[in-house]
């Protein structure tokens, strides 16, 4: 099961996606509601990639448009960015480490509060761009995931 967070306008939805038998049918939970959806391939359609799904509204949100687009390419972020300014206290992963969505990868201290930074996706860490003690600004890349 994969989990995505989709922001439309000012409402954030948590979407859980479970493949059913084949790659075209999915069971989808959106804020507790269950839907069964079928995806149809549109080969010449370029999926739009949003590197920061959390901060950008996805423009076309009609159900028809959503059906036409494979969902996962639109929301998997290529890197993890600082959600707020602060100081890196701990780095919990190394390049090559395999992480699951929700695994703690860093600890960021902001306003004297320790914050666990968890991986927004499952994947393999390609590169850690910060070290403990380093100050980071908002939206600064913290680590990169291996593509593919």
């Amino acid at each position: 099961m994969k989990r995505y967070t989709v922001t439309i306008g000012d409402i954030t939805h948590v979407v859980d996606l479970q493949p059913l038998n084949d790659a075209e049918h999915y069971r989808v939970w959106v804020d507790g509601q269950v839907y069964d959806v079928a995806l149809s391939e549109a080969p010449d359609h370029e999926p739009q990639v949003h590197p920061h799904p959390s901060t950008e509204a996805i423009p076309s949100a009609s159900p028809a448009a959503a059906r036409d687009r494979p969902a996962d390419t639109a929301t998997e972020p290529a890197d993890l960015r600082a959600p707020m300014p602060g100081v890196i206290l701990e780095v919990n992963v190394e390049p090559g480490a395999e992480v699951q969505r929700g695994d703690q990868v860093l600890v960021l201290e902001a306003m004297k509060m320790k914050n666990a930074i968890r991986s927004p996706r499952s994947g393999i860490v390609a590169e850690v761009l910060v070290r403990p003690g380093q100050s980071v600004n908002y939206d600064e890349p913290l680590l990169r995931y291996r593509q593919g």
């Binding site: 954030t12 959390s54 707020m84 300014p85 306003m111 509060m113 914050n115 968890r118 927004p120």
Partner: peptide, 18 residues
């Protein structure tokens, strides 16, 4: 901090601290 913690209970990618 309480706000940050309660928000993160629902969504660990939500940072309301600032």
């Amino acid at each position: 901090r309480v706000v940050q913690r309660v928000a993160q209970e629902e969504d660990f990618e939500n940072f309301l601290l600032m």
